[in-house]
Design a binder for these strands. Structure first.
Lengths: 190, 190
DNA sequence: CTGAGACTAGACAGGTCTGTCTGGTAGCGT
DNA sequence: ACGCTACCAGACAGACCTGTCTAGTCTCAG
């Protein structure tokens, strides 16, 4: 009930295995295309154990989204550069590198949102929460860099990020990489 | 195999009803969440009739994507403004207006791509084709306007478009609208 | 030793999925 | 009158879906 989204409820090995397996399959194939049976088979876990840790599939999806968000936050924490400006560049460079990888399948948040139309759904709210964090990260970095219009530019960077994750999934990575670079120089110059 | 994507194979009323119903339900709820039974019930069509016109659900999805593309191309054709520059502005203004509507649920191409991971799948190829048209539209308009770097700027506009369709689905429309406006002035100034 | 909790294996219910098949009706060109 | 095609209604097969349940194993704290 409490808002302890950061801590895992229980670090059970079976639960962890389920969550990792689900993340892999959900990301690679989509949420609705992967059934519980396949997840528990791949994770080597009994069905009763799964339903012991997760009350429903939707809750597993929610946990998957929350875990992806936590992983991204942790990742950003590791690549603090010398200046806010360089940190910002490092964030986008990382996203480009990740997007160019062979296993890239788009942004888990955007992809999952496409499968959950109702904005009031818990899964969608978890996605919205992560988006807010993302925008705030940009705003804080811009403000720390002394940017004149940090608020509006943060919105722009979120838009660029969304275009980035879609483009790397659907278009030629090398082109998108160059496009992102050029876009950043154009929108950040001021 | 030919490139006659514009013409419908057969203008049968039942087929049209199925395609329109499928488009509405697919867009509102996602492809995998809507079954054939619901589509034919809502369209008032017998199952045999459906499979008479469409060999499989995947082919229906492909037709849905192709039809969305044709509709977008037709829509752009109607809003030719006085100059290429104004036409470009009108295209983005239209997307913003559409994205601000209450029934907006994101871009059908992006959303459907999220449910079809395999890039070699016919549905994904239909999506890629539409994206190419979109990029070429931008490039041609920019070139006709005498833009110095039409190719690279077209890539940027496609990226902005992707950010736009995602943002209108997941964030506050008024904010996204302003963000798009500001982004365009920044990336087009040169 | 006892009892609680995490775990495994797998049957089961009730529903939905895609796709096929049967059988019958209505219009239409020849 | 004939055959062709489009269409309707709905049963059916076989697979898969989520979620529940039974029954038993193992570990560990007290």
């Amino acid at each position: 009930m409490s808002a302890e989204t950061a801590k895992d409820p229980r670090p059970s090995p079976a639960r962890t295995r389920v969550l990792e397996t689900a993340a892999r399959l959900f990301y690679a194939e989509g949420v609705h295309s992967v059934g519980i049976d396949r997840i528990i088979a791949a994770a080597g876990v009994a069905k009763a154990t799964f339903y012991h840790h997760f009350p429903s599939k939707d809750e597993l999806v929610r946990a998957y989204i929350a875990e992806q968000g936590a992983a991204q936050r942790a990742m950003v924490g590791t690549l603090r550069a010398d200046s806010p400006r360089e940190t910002l560049a490092a964030v986008f460079a990382f996203m480009c590198e990740f997007g160019s990888g062979s296993g890239y399948r788009g942004c888990p948040f955007v992809n999952t949102a496409a499968e959950y139309p109702d904005p009031a759904h818990p899964v969608r709210q978890a996605i919205a929460e992560h988006r807010r964090w993302h925008r705030d990260l940009y705003r804080d970095l811009l403000a720390a860099d002394g940017h004149a219009d940090a608020e509006r530019t943060a919105d722009i960077l979120l838009l660029v990020r969304d275009g980035l994750v879609v483009g790397f999934d659907l278009d030629d990575p090398a082109t998108v990489r160059a496009t992102v670079q050029e876009t950043l120089t154009r929108v950040l110059t001021r």
